[in-house]
Design a protein around this nucleic acid. Structure first.
Lengths: 414, 414
DNA sequence: AAGAGTTTGTTAAAGGATCTAATTTAGTGA
DNA sequence: TCACTAAATTAGATCCTTTAACAAACTCTT
């Protein structure tokens, strides 16, 4: 009675782990939900009990909760297996939707997917050139709105949007630091631009990083927890996955290997961008080695080079070998640093098998002390978009789980 | 009545997060213990309540539990601050002990520390040469036993032992894959050899990795969550910390950059180990550049080279510059891949400031697109041992927390 | 010197969530 | 029809945390 209403002691911010009984509920609901998401098809309460290690009453109460929230769908009873017929359920992957935008130098790919990241609708549009970023974003969002309608996904139900950009990205602010192949893209606050037009969770990510995630989930790097994607097109860049997690670096510049200096003689300041890996072994350099006069049409010279190589043409062999040597050296150095289990090659230089990959493999066998598999991208130009939907699904699932916790806490405070 | 003793459903292994109320207890005890460990000095229950966000009764009951287990020490009452006098407590850092062994090519450093990793006793012994690994291990464990006695740490209370080896280590099996500077060390099951002699938790780790952890906790890389240690001595190797966690690579070979090929002309197979970074820029190569006849005494030539450099001696300048160029190139390539916030230079080549570091810094400014700090190791030859105690303390704290959970569960089953 | 006010810590009662055990539901098979 | 099986729900007990009240021990003012 001495103190009528003493202030509650120890209210030092959000606890990071469960402390109170109510948090247990959220944790267990979370656990069940996670199992439901991982389960590709349908399942019964009994299976959830098995998989979760929780007791039957708990699973029962959690599932009814999740069904009432719309996260699980009740599909009625299944045939008996000797006793009472079980109730089938499945994760309601259309409880929300995700979208991906892969902003490329010439083409932009858009897709809408469900909460598992499965693609429901996709579209390819030309990337408008010579317009300011805001105008480009405006056009892309309007295309996305069409696509959402096509997929039967109400905009309100869009939980997360992931956009990939061809350059390093500051993850924390969602800013594209620069994009050499997009005119005028320096320090573009892409996330802000998108958020002004679409109200949802937004993640901006580098396109090579997204490609690696795509290859990791459904492509050439499946089951490889530590791997590298080396993209060689006009530009050269790498993405790094470490124990299943993308590595971004302290300045979000990890994998920016295009500027690597490959030989001591290139250190002199005036040689500049030509002395770096990108300048010596990118697609432009390869063309200059083979067709310095630029006599062949832009979409034919590469095929002609490959043909010449198979004929044994000396200039073609030299161009391919010198290029492959530099790429293999860079790959070996990245490999020695990271020690991946696989290196995925992608970009227009490695769009399909051919003498370039073979040469890279051959040289790597000579110089890499710790050998790693070298494979071609399986998803090709679709890899970044696949990565978008994957990241989007992960983000969306996080949001879902957060809602779960939020719902619990609200009930608690009430 | 229908079924007399139905087997319990859903006993599918260990739950990863709390499910049952009893687990809450372990979680909250864990939380309090963690705060206690982080608190450098003493604290009161009231402070724990503040820091943990738990309620006063919970903290009260948890602390009495922890005190009865010996993990916290009751230090009696402290002077009042206007009310009832608080009870002071502290983390009982001597509830257990940790040990570290830094196995070097010429010297082996041993230390015993408390649960916080603070050093209590240390010793340096000559590494016996030309004895099989088992004999070496036998000698080291006997030296360690002496040291434990000296530190007042009963062997039964030794919770974890961390040994560093000068070569790549298979963490999962505790095997030293190879160690060029230790004669006959190929695929040595060091953890097994140690466990046969000392019964405690044992971790084997690469010495450069340990050095980086040491520099990260108390040395030159403090507050840098993503950083690289480049060791240049007889051999050359790197350690990589990513978001505060060591990166080991898929074959435990990450950072094995000594074998990196630095220029296309070195790719031909017959050049062999001389064409790699270690052969071109290690301490032996530097000596060959400066004193090819090996005329100067082994412990003097380096100082003499430095003196000659400061005189402007042309051969010295060339030797230093060429070496620094190669090291800077390797650093730039690692840096472009990892994008660290700081690069720590260590090993006998970088034992103290001098023209070599200056040259490396100068060249890095020219070729590194994403600049990072370049600093010298602050702990020098003690860095790996510091890392041993650090890792040991972490392991020991994990063991402690595990005990906590185990204790809870036992009580539950009972 | 006494009482008001403070700070610290403990006890008591209530609430929420899980678990085990029993029960209901709904089938299969002899 | 009856015994048996499997799935799901209900009932009761247990555990832990929280809020609220209380006790302890001290400072400071009147």
């Amino acid at each position: 009675m001495a103190h009528g209403h003493r202030p509650t002691r120890g209210s030092a911010g959000e606890p990071t782990t469960a402390t109170h009984a109510a948090h247990l509920r959220a944790l267990n609901a979370d656990r069940v939900l996670r199992i439901a998401i991982d389960q590709p098809g349908t399942f019964t309460r009994a299976e959830l009990i098995q998989a979760s290690g929780l007791s039957a009453p708990t699973v029962g109460s959690v599932t009814t909760d999740l069904i009432s929230k719309g996260m699980l769908s009740d599909l009625g009873t299944a045939p008996s297996r000797g006793g009472r017929r079980p109730t089938l359920m499945e994760f309601n992957a259309r409880h929300g939707f995700v979208a991906g935008i892969d902003l490329g130098p010439t083409r932009t790919r858009l897709a809408v997917g469900d909460l598992r990241g499965h693609q429901l609708a996709a579209r390819i549009v030309d990337t408008p050139t010579d317009v300011p970023p805001a105008v480009l974003v405006e056009q892309m969002t309007s295309a996305l709105r069409d696509l959402l309608a096509e997929a039967g996904a109400p905009e309100k139900r869009l939980v997360s949007l992931v956009a990939g950009a061809p350059g390093p990205v500051d993850l924390s602010s969602g800013t594209v630091l620069y994009a050499p192949n997009l005119h005028g893209w320096n320090t573009v606050p892409l996330r802000t631009l998108l958020r002004e037009r679409i109200n949802t969770g937004i993640v901006i990510e580098n396109d090579v990083n997204l490609a690696l995630l795509g290859e990791h989930s459904t492509g050439a790097a499946r089951d490889h927890r530590t791997c590298v994607f080396l993209f060689v097109g006009t530009g050269i860049g790498a993405a790094i996955l470490i124990d299943g997690v993308l590595h971004h670096g302290h300045h979000y510049m990890a994998g920016e290997v295009g500027a690597m200096v490959m030989s001591p003689e290139h250190i002199g300041g005036d040689v500049g961008p030509r002395g770096c890996l990108e300048g010596l072994a990118g697609m432009k350099a390869l063309r200059s080695r083979w067709d310095p006069a630029r006599a062949e049409p832009p979409d034919r010279w590469f095929a002609s080079l490959m043909q010449a190589y198979s004929r044994g043409d000396a200039r073609a062999v030299e161009a391919v070998d010198e290029t492959a040597t530099l790429i293999a050296m860079a790959a070996a150095q990245i490999g020695a640093t990271i020690d991946p289990s696989v290196l995925v090659l992608g970009g227009s230089m490695f769009a399909e098998p051919g003498p370039l990959v073979d040469a890279v493999r051959r040289i790597l066998r000579q110089i890499a002390r710790t050998p790693f598999e070298v494979v071609l991208s399986a998803l090709g130009k679709d890899a970044p978009l696949a990565g978008c939907l994957l990241v989007g699904a992960h983000e969306a699932q996080r949001t879902l789980r957060h809602q779960l916790r939020g719902g619990q806490r609200r009930r608690l405070v009430q």
